[in-house]
Design a protein around this nucleic acid. Structure first.
Lengths: 343, 343
DNA sequence: GAGGTACGCTAAAACGATTTAGTTTGTATC
DNA sequence: GATACAAACTAAATCGTTTTAGCGTACCTC
């Protein structure tokens, strides 16, 4: 059984292709198609199980009602939740989402943009890799709206972004640890050139400075992005050797690192918070359920998704216009400190 | 800046559209296009940043090199991991994946199939909802390959499926609990008509029967699918009232229920495994990291994804043929009992 | 009875590719 | 000098839609 096309319907209903098209697109009234013909066409279409071919439609109209979502890794809880929110949100505006993971690989990221562009998505929501700004500007030059999430390019302020206030979040967390009496606060972060992680790091530095706590390199672990689970686990374990003497608290700057951290701490049988206080940037089921429960700086994932869609839709509406939307808006959302038993 | 099309290239290079098409599709040699023209076209295409329009291509060829993946909920760890595996696997065969979540809603599932069909995906990998068999048969009638994963329709054996041996998995788990001396084994499952869950339930019944342990309704909690977190949590808490007296172990039949279970147990401050042994179907980071670690029946997620892709690709190759691929193959993969501290 | 307009519909171009069936030119064959 | 054939391309149809322009008829107006 072949797929049925608009001309099959036209033939069977004894009308022209145009008429069918008008009926199917609710333009029948505007085009003064008679009541009987409308019903006739609708019946035939239903009977034959007609489903309009979106490729043809997209080719003709230049709109696919699809947005491309590029995240770092869809199997990570943060991005999976974000993806779900964006999918749900897009549905409200009658858009479909296609998502893909970069694995933080520049080449793959470019390939994905290329692929989405070839598939003519109407707009993009992107978690960029460090060198992706030029590729993204090309999309903008083609008049395709783009919104960055989670990460951004300070040197390219014309690309709108929805972010959390990373600096403030980490500063707040560090401040909280100090307030609770910890002063040998270790930090675990990921090695990257991306500004959002630098912002987080600055938050830590700034608060230590404010409290005249010297910055000690030995209390910092910078895990290379490329390292596999085991290596990363090993590096964190190394840092934890100092627990009790050189460090009394540890702040993980991503949820992935935090989970690894929990694993390392568990292996070492360190008592939280007696031997070591723990704080993590970005929440996770595990942190909520672990014993003891782990304090976190929570990112408002739903808001990020909603705001990103909102900015994108706004631009999508205007993207017929000469130069698209005037200026970039970058939104900074507030994080929330969730105090649990680990501190 | 507008997108560049094949005819822009043709004009600039001073050749015909067909020639450009041949060059871009590596058919230049077969079509005896001269070396100079090939180079000329390639250069112009590169300079102008040509990206072929996949809509047009798909419209003409009838192939989109895209497969549709429908899961229950992409933010669930099981499905997120599965999606990632399938995405990676598809890439090897030069296919792109678009995924969507049904939220186990029949209407939404139908809409999604409809949407993917309109977008002309070449094949489908589907986690079905209970009443989806007829809709799936329509796809097969249109000669579109479909592979089910995780769930299946015993009454529709013509739809290929990649499953785990649910009966055997739960039987093995129940057997293990009994072997370890537990005989008041409670069970938490989800209310559904789907065969895979019935298989799991049968595994439990069968093993109890084999050991002459009477089946006690009060030890079973069947959570309605539609219930929200709080309600489900409440129902599990209710069951746990019996811990120590009426029940000495609990077997959660899905990973979602298991996580809720952990939460309920934690709230009640029950000691695992002293007051209650815990076993869950399907692993999760939380079970591995929780204290004590939770024993599970592990599903081979990577294999499920790989096998599903493998079956699909095989059918995709043959789908030009008159009746597609002859008979359905249903694969049953083995689960693995991972014994941890909770038993 | 010429001109206007409302009605109800259709023809045909266009979107950007692929692909089949040529066309033109040059060279070799008998 | 006619025929054949290869080389190097090109013209045009096609996929399934949307959309603009237009066509024929009927009725109205002056």
């Amino acid at each position: 059984m072949k797929k049925v096309s608009i001309s099959d319907i036209a033939r069977k209903a004894g009308v022209s292709v145009s008429t069918v098209s008008f009926v199917m697109n609710d333009k029948a009234v505007k085009m003064r198609i008679s009541r009987e013909v409308i019903e006739k066409v609708e019946n035939v279409a239903r009977e034959m199980g007609y489903r309009p071919n979106q490729l043809a439609r997209g080719l003709r109209t230049g709109k696919t009602k699809t947005i491309g979502l590029i995240v770092e890794n869809i199997s990570n809880a943060f991005f999976a939740t974000l993806a779900k929110t964006i999918e749900d949100e897009a549905k409200k505006y009658d858009y479909k989402v296609v998502y893909c993971s970069t694995d933080n690989d520049e080449v793959k990221a470019r390939e994905l943009i290329n692929m989405l562009s070839q598939r003519q998505v109407d707009g993009y929501i992107i978690t960029p890799t460090p060198l992706l700004a030029d590729e993204i500007k090309k999309l903008q030059a083609e008049n395709k709206p783009v919104v960055l999430i989670d990460r951004y390019f300070p040197e390219a302020p014309t690309i709108p972004a929805v972010l959390v206030d990373n600096f403030e979040g980490v500063a707040k967390g560090t401040e909280y640890l100090i307030e609770k009496g910890y002063d040998k606060i270790a930090l675990v972060t990921i090695e990257t050139d991306m500004a959002h992680m630098k912002d987080r790091l600055s938050g830590y530095f700034e608060v230590l400075r404010r409290h005249d706590i010297p910055i000690d390199e030995r209390r910092m672990k910078i895990v290379p992005y490329s390292s596999d689970r085991e290596t990363a686990l090993g590096m964190i374990a190394e840092l934890l050797e100092g627990a009790g003497s050189e460090i009394d608290a540890v702040f993980f700057l991503t949820n992935y690192l935090g989970v690894l951290g929990i694993e390392a701490i568990k292996k070492k049988r360190l008592k939280i918070p007696d031997q070591l206080a723990v704080l993590c940037f970005d929440d996770n089921d595990i942190f909520r359920l672990y014993t003891p429960t782990i304090s976190v700086i929570r990112q408002p994932i739903e808001s990020i998704g909603q705001q990103a869609m909102c900015v994108l839709i706004e631009r999508l509406k205007h993207s017929g216009g000469a130069e698209g939307y005037p200026i970039a808006d970058t939104l900074h959302l507030r994080t929330e400190l969730i105090a649990r038993e680990s501190i």
